[in-house]
């Protein structure tokens, strides 16, 4: 079949290269699968929800130009409740510098959210993801999960689990609009 050694070598090299390239491609594709759909650097998907604390609606795309923290939480999630006061504390300081917080509650009944919100005297915008649509869109698994979004709408950081005051401030600084 092979006229000479050279042809045989080329044939073998081509076949081996193709097979090994396919193997590497498969391993690479598989490693991509382990990563969440939304990774740092991706565009944050837009959403629009009514605010619970006022009659306005919040649309994420309207907040471009500001650094946005989207915090997925629920009243039945103890660590979520613990980080809320930190968010409140820093919100007062950073709101004027161009940071917005959107707290997305994934509870089912808004009564429980309102009660909690009033009890803690929180001032940042609160929205209710009653059907879990946004949670599904953002592929949120554990609660709390926070997305820190740059002024240009890209995700700077995804944090799964509770935050401390120090870390929260560091992350706010990362997404702080320049000027």
């Amino acid at each position: 079949m092979f006229k000479n050694k050279k042809v045989r070598l080329i044939f073998r090299t081509v076949v081996l290269t193709a097979l090994i390239a396919a193997t590497i491609a498969v391993i690479y594709l598989n490693s991509l699968k382990d990563n969440p759909v939304l990774a740092e650097g991706d565009d944050a998907p837009n959403f629009m929800l009514e605010r619970l604390d006022s009659n306005e609606v919040i649309e994420l795309d309207q907040l471009k130009g500001k650094g946005v923290m989207i915090n997925f939480w629920a009243t039945y999630c103890e660590p979520c409740k613990k980080e809320m006061p930190y968010m409140e504390e820093l919100y007062k300081e950073y709101q004027d510098k161009g940071i917005e917080i959107v707290a997305v509650s994934v509870d089912k009944n808004r009564m429980v959210i309102e009660n909690f919100y009033n009890r803690f005297d929180l001032s940042f915008p609160l929205v209710h993801d009653k059907k879990g649509t946004i949670m599904e869109l953002y592929q949120v698994q554990p609660l709390p999960t926070s997305f820190f979004i740059n002024p240009d709408g890209t995700i700077e950081r995804v944090v799964k689990g509770p935050l401390t005051l120090d870390r929260l401030e560091t992350y706010f600084k990362e997404i702080l609009p320049k000027n």
């Binding site: 998907p45 837009n46 959403f47 629009m48 929800l49 649309e59 993801d129 649509t133 946004i134 869109l137």
Partner: peptide
């Protein structure tokens, strides 16, 4: 099936 796409959340 969704008839017309809306902004998620709506």
């Amino acid at each position: 099936k969704v008839k017309e796409e809306v902004i998620p959340g709506q």
